[in-house]
Design a protein around this nucleic acid. Structure first.
Lengths: 247, 247
DNA sequence: GAGACTTAGCGTATTTTTGGCACAAAGATT
DNA sequence: AATCTTTGTGCCAAAAATACGCTAAGTCTC
């Protein structure tokens, strides 16, 4: 009979990605603590302890709703961080104070979410005291949250090649340039605009709209929408071309 | 203050993939139970409860060593299955009897492993009472193990495109045909042999050996080894060609 | 109205990929 | 020794992907 660990507290931490048309951003919150010294210093990913009779996806959704006010957002589990030493003594003390849990170990589950970063969202999160930071500009977070973030970005890159989730980061109507910027930001690459639009239009995943960009000091770009029908008939026939043939 | 769940038992279940040169296979074990009625019927993935002060990777490694006798094998975490209803009353009873744990909930973490399926391995696992079944021929497993298996296969497909882990399923020295068969089996596609070897050799990831196949009733194929140096210089320069340029 | 700026799109040369056909080579089988 | 099977190679034409020059068009600022 095994010596079994049943006193693990399980938490979820969410990497909430947003895209402002230029850079890939992540929503960060400040640790809530009585000590004013810590205030404004320690950034972390939004997270929560899992409740009784709650699944992990439910817990992650709760965190997401708490920080963004949104429900039903795309959420994907990434990796579990279970190193017994990932939360040190002082961190456990903080958890004990703040959550009222006294445990020797906290196992956390990473999630990433994709949200449309419009002005309403920015206003909402600002009122919550949360901040959107460029992925490239984040270098330190509390505990192992930096690891959770890096891991989520890698998973996001893989996932974008397999399903049209990239569009979840864009507004319902978007320009070709926005989509291109998004992919360039996520993968850190450069894409030739002329060839990109050739492939993109050839793939049939975009639907044209009547509208154009507004308030730009140059020729306004057409707005497009995602054509979900284009994904019904996956061309798995030849090769691995179900891997983002439109990229 | 939240109402927090701290009485979750955490287990790991391992999807152990092997390749026999033809088909992708998974190692399955029979549920150990007092009731002879169940015997030979209920197949499951090898798994275990996590112990105190043990990380999840350690637990997964322990399971892997128990079923294959191997240590230091490639192991990758996939998804957590945390639905409170995933283990029903009778299953909990079995867990209580067998593991001596009485809990209302078992959260399990999926792992997949890649092993070289040689004759020694087959003999070892046979003595353990475990069976290697073709992935395509597995249609029912206990609890939600079928879900864990399907999920692991999807993750494996993605991972193979990003790193040279496919070779962990092949013997140290292998033929081009074996590699091609492996990819065809994993992705369920057909690959043109002529072009496959062009790209493969152009990528420089194979090292020729002096040896050839033995005991085949046709012209024996050359044996190759993986050239690990070829992966140091990732060509992330242009486009997304770090996605399996050799495929 | 003249630039500045960026989208939108055409066209084309070049390179790469795909895939067919032919055929030699090496071992096992009969 | 003839036959069979699969590997391994060369050639080559069609198709697709890529690189890139160039022009027109629409909106803003000055």
């Amino acid at each position: 009979m095994d010596n079994v660990q049943i006193n693990s507290a399980i938490s979820v931490d969410c990497v909430i990605f947003g895209f402002d048309g230029e850079n890939l951003k992540v929503l960060l919150v400040r640790r809530r603590t009585a000590d004013p010294l810590y205030h404004d210093k320690e950034l972390k990913l939004p997270g929560a302890m899992i409740r009784e009779n709650e699944t992990l996806p439910e817990a992650a959704e709760r965190v997401l709703e708490g920080s963004t006010g949104l429900k039903g957002i795309y959420l994907k589990q990434t990796t579990i961080f279970s190193d017994p030493g990932r939360v040190d003594e002082s961190e456990l003390e903080w958890i004990g104070q703040y959550h009222g849990i006294h445990t020797v170990r906290v196992v956390t589950v990473g999630y990433y979410a994709l949200v449309k970063l419009d002005q309403g969202m920015i206003n909402y999160t600002r009122r919550q005291g949360a901040v959107w930071k460029n992925v490239d500009d984040i270098h330190h977070l509390i505990m192992d949250h930096m690891d959770i973030l890096s891991d989520a970005l890698t998973v996001l890159q893989k996932d974008i090649l397999w399903s049209p989730i990239a569009f979840k980061l864009l507004p319902k109507k978007f320009t070709v340039r926005q989509l291109q910027n998004l992919l360039e930001a996520v993968f850190g690459i450069e894409i030739d605009n002329r060839n990109f639009r050739k492939k993109l239009f050839a793939s049939g995943i975009l639907m044209e709209t009547e509208e154009t960009e507004k308030h730009v000091s140059h020729k306004p770009a057409k707005l497009y929408m995602l054509n979900r029908n284009a994904f019904g008939k996956k061309d798995i026939t030849n090769k691995l071309q179900f891997v983002a043939s439109w990229l």
